[in-house]
Nucleic acid binder design. Structure first.
Lengths: 150, 150
DNA sequence: TCGCAGAGTGGGAAAAAGTGGGAAATCTAG
DNA sequence: CTAGATTTCCCACTTTTTCCCACTCTGCGA
């Protein structure tokens, strides 16, 4: 399981160093092969085998449903294969950096079987939104959440 | 599986360079032969064998059904055979370029067994639509999507 | 406190990919 | 049959990518 948040920097060539503590696990799981794709506002980073499972699920969705089609289009469409280089870095394609507005400072957030990669500014904006929503009590939670005990 | 987004440029002669990482696969699958046809807003690029399968399916559709007829007409009608040249480029027929409003800057989007080719401006418009819909909570998702865990 | 080791960062050079243009070949129309 | 136009093929230049090396920084132990 990947956990924890790390500040990371993307250098001028678009390279991103994966924090060392994850490298061994990634090496084991997929021989250093990762797939990076887009979410609404951030990028998602999967070990190759985990991605392949997701991809299978996506492809099985009904392709005439516009929302499903769009999800396929974006997630599979942007998915890019990368391999860790000799220093444990991966190259973020320009298209991905543009999509997620990632310039230099970013946050790598462990999320179980994947990572999220956020532009620093967007992330803090998101924190603000979260706190605001809590304030104004925007809480029509789905039943699964209602009964969740933390 | 083809995946990933690439910025590509169509030169003044209408030629499009297929990114190298796909070439080997295309060479194996169809000896460099591709079929390019139209979708509603973009072009579709299939390896020849995959296209032939699609074509068979299309032709078997009930030809009295107006929507099916139209799909046949456009997809089969515009389908054009191309071969990779010595530098891995293909020639986009003028009719196809006009149909999809592809002028110079375009995006090649891997979608499993095929590619989509979008005019750059149209594609970013599509991204905007996606983000908007998500915002406004247009969520009559099909059950397959509701329960999808990424 | 100093120095060493591991991690992170930046940059240079070789190689590969992308791009554009020209010449030869083919086609079309008069 | 010929002249013009279009297509096809190939070559050369430019840009990007990739690989590798070197320097810096931080944290830990001596």
């Amino acid at each position: 399981m990947f956990r924890g948040a790390n500040k990371v920097t993307v250098d001028s060539k678009g390279r991103l160093a994966i924090p060392t503590r994850y490298r061994e696990r990634i090496g084991q799981r997929s021989d250093g092969q990762l797939v990076i794709t887009v979410d609404r506002q951030c990028l998602l980073i999967y070990p190759l085998p985990d991605w392949e499972e997701i991809e299978r699920k996506l492809i099985r969705l009904p392709s005439l449903h516009p929302q499903a089609r769009r999800l396929q289009q974006f997630m599979v469409g942007y998915a890019s294969d990368v391999t860790l280089d000799s220093h444990g870095r991966v190259l973020l394609a320009k298209e991905l950096r543009e999509f997620a507005a990632i310039d230099r400072q970013a946050l790598l957030i462990g999320q179980g079987n994947k990572f999220e990669l956020w532009d620093e500014a967007r992330w803090s904006q998101r924190i603000d939104e979260w706190l605001e929503d809590e304030q104004t009590g925007e809480s029509d939670l789905p039943p699964e959440l209602e009964s969740l005990s933390l």
